[in-house]
Simulated assay, not measured.
Amino acid sequence: MPPTNSPTLRQRRLGAELRKLRERSGLTATAAAGLLGVNQARISMIETGRTPISADRLRSMAHAYDCSDEQLIDALASMTGRRARGWWEEYRDHLPAALVDLAELEHHASGLRVALAMHIPALLQTTDHARALFRAVVPAMRQYEIEHRLAHRMKRQAILDREEPFPYEAIIHESALRMGFGGADVRRGQLKHLLDMSEVPYITVRVIPFDAEYYPSTGQSFDYVEGPVPQLDTVQLDTHHGGCGFLDAEAQLSKYRAVLDHMEACSLDPAESRSFIQNLVRDI
């Protein structure tokens, strides 16, 4: 398969996981190349995601690296081959690559947990609320940029309407629910939409009120995207310049899982959270 100069996040992750397996086996790239009958440059291209590989080649590599975790091998094998051209690819020339990669990451997720202090989760936003957010970005976006981002965000939400949806949990601080983006009517519509979505069986909405005993976070929003096996989980951080940062080191994943567990512990339960939001709607 010919190399690519712009590997996606998914392709880079596959390569990084193969590098981890090789390093755990104690093999250098040169030694691995000798075992597999390829040159060292080919190993490097695979590990940077620039050269797609087949599932059979991946299984050969895993065997050479003494990996016996069949679930992990199967999960990695499902990531092989050339880049699947999903709907998100049409935005690659119009949006930052990280936003396009995020849509692909969500598409392949098996579960999603998000935590937000100042914003409604992107997958639960109304069109009016999202448009108001994009209009508030500094520096200001041009109208066509707003429309590209808005269309991309709305298409991302389709993952919550699939025939076989994954579990989705949103932990939202009260401050995010009180933000007035777009004015009273937009805020009311957004909160009502949030209530409707919270009634969906596989969607859980939890609120952390101002009077919670503690708030185990710095206030930074993040998504915890669950992969087919825990080793392939990913944390996506919202950065101050509006981009996406992706973390996948074992220690980082463990940290953010613990943060989410603590945030869930200090939040209202789903029924209490719905009542809390209903009271906010009545007060608008």
Rank of each mutant, 00 (worst) to 15 (best):
A170S: 10
H108Q: 14
H129R: 06
H193G: 05
S273F: 00
D269A: 13
P270Y: 05
P209N: 10
Y202T: 12
D269C: 15
L76K: 01
L27A: 09
T127A: 11
A64K: 06
H108F: 10
D185Q: 14
R24W: 11
R188F: 06
A151G: 08
D238I: 09
E145C: 06
T127N: 09
E272F: 09
D101L: 09
Q143P: 09
L112H: 07
E145M: 06
H94K: 14
L133S: 02
R24N: 15
L9I: 00
A62G: 09
S273A: 10
G182R: 05
I171A: 05
I43D: 00
L160I: 08
L9E: 03
S273M: 02
I208Y: 03
D211W: 13
H108T: 11
A33Q: 05
A55G: 14
H119V: 11
D223C: 11
T126S: 11
P7S: 11
N39G: 11
A103F: 03
P96G: 09
A249T: 13
P165R: 06
L27E: 00
D66R: 14
L21H: 09
D74M: 08
P3R: 12
A64P: 06
Q190V: 07
E169Q: 12
T234S: 13
G189D: 04
L237S: 05
I172K: 01
L76Y: 01
A29W: 04
A98T: 12
G219S: 06
H173C: 08
T8L: 11
A115K: 02
R24A: 15
T204H: 01
D93N: 12
V38N: 07
Q236V: 13
S78Y: 07
A41T: 15
W88V: 03
G182Q: 02
T30N: 12
H173S: 07
P230M: 12
R42A: 14
E89W: 13
A212W: 04
Y168L: 09
T51I: 12
L232H: 01
D66P: 01
E47A: 10
P3V: 13
G49N: 03
Q190L: 04
H119T: 11
S78W: 02
H119C: 05
D93T: 14
G227T: 07
A151L: 13
A265G: 08
L95P: 02
F222Y: 10
L280I: 14
A184G: 03
Q71T: 12
M263V: 12
V138T: 13
E272L: 12
L116K: 00
